[in-house]
């Protein structure tokens, strides 16, 4: 259980797509997690891509946005590990 494989500073790679990417103005970033045991939902609050409503300090992950961790769908409460690739996916329109 060593730390040799862990990237420094509790970092994850964040990826945004489509409308979400354009609203944020970026598509891919290395982000250092604020806390040691953060979930994808915690990461979303940390990113603060949207302005918080009055009386609130952070915006929760909207139910329309899906999470993928290391390129597989995951629930928003999945704990993140250093080095994970975390993607926030706006509503899908394929086919």
């Amino acid at each position: 259980m060593g730390h040799q494989a862990a990237p420094p500073d509790n970092q994850v790679r964040v990826r945004l797509f489509a409308a979400l990417r354009e609203q944020a103005g970026w598509g891919e970033r290395e982000i250092r997690l604020d806390t040691g045991s953060a979930s994808a939902a915690d990461l979303w609050r940390q990113l603060a891509l949207e302005a918080a409503p009055p009386g609130s300090t952070a915006v929760d992950l909207p139910p329309t946005i899906r999470v993928a961790i290391n390129q597989a769908f995951a629930t928003a409460d999945t704990p993140l590990r250093p080095g994970d690739e975390v993607a926030f996916l706006p509503p899908i329109t394929g086919g």
Binding site: A19, F73, L89, P90, I92, T93, G94, G95
Partner: peptide
Amino acid sequence: LKHHAPFWKR
């Protein structure tokens, strides 16, 4: 694939 594959149309 319309709902569960990561594609976005513009």
